[in-house]
Design a protein around this nucleic acid. Sequence first.
DNA 1: TGTCTAAGTCAAGTGTGCTTTACAAAAAGA
DNA 2: TCTTTTTGTAAAGCACACTTGACTTAGACA
Lengths: 67, 67
Amino acid sequence: MKNRLKVLRAERDWTQAQLAEALEVSRQTINAIEKGKFDPSLPLAFKAARLFKLPIEDIFDDEVETK
Amino acid sequence: MKNRLKVLRAERDWTQAQLAEALEVSRQTINAIEKGKFDPSLPLAFKAARLFKLPIEDIFDDEVETK
DNA sequence: TGTCTAAGTCAAGTGTGCTTTACAAAAAGA
DNA sequence: TCTTTTTGTAAAGCACACTTGACTTAGACA
C-alpha cells in the first residue's frame, strides 16, 4: 500500500515524530507506514484523513505498486 | 466503528456468504464486522469500496457510537 | 571536527484481524 | 410442522498492526 504521508508532512514541514504525536501513534509506526513496511489500521487511516482533511483514498493507495 | 454493509447487502439482496466471497474473506469475518466485533483492515475496506463503488467514508463510520 | 536533529532499523512483546471448524438460533418456505 | 437457508457465536491458531527501547545513519551547522 502506497501513501502520501511523506509529501503531506513535507507540505506542512512536520517531522515523523510530530505526525506520530498528532495521530497518537509511535514514531516507528509512522516510519514503517511511510516505508511501506505495513498498512495502517482503518481507524488510523480515518485519523490521518481527518488530520489532513482529505479522503482516505487521497492519502492511501491500495493499487498494486508497479515499480 | 459503524458500517453500512448490512444495508448495502440488502439493497443487492446478498447474503453474508455472498459478500464474503466477493471480498475474499470468510463469512464469519463479514458477520463480525457487521456486528461491530472488530474493524476491517484498510485493504479490506478498499476492497469493499471498490465493490460497492463508494468512498470508504460512505461505507464505514469512524465516529463514536452514541447508542 | 563535534554536536544536534531527523530518519531508518531491529528485537521482543501485546493486541487484534482473520482463519477454520463447529454448532445453535432465527428466518423463510414448503 | 418440517426442512433449508441464513445469521450468530465460540474456540484455537496464525499473521500483522503497533508498542517500547535501543542503536545506527545522515544532514545541518557551529
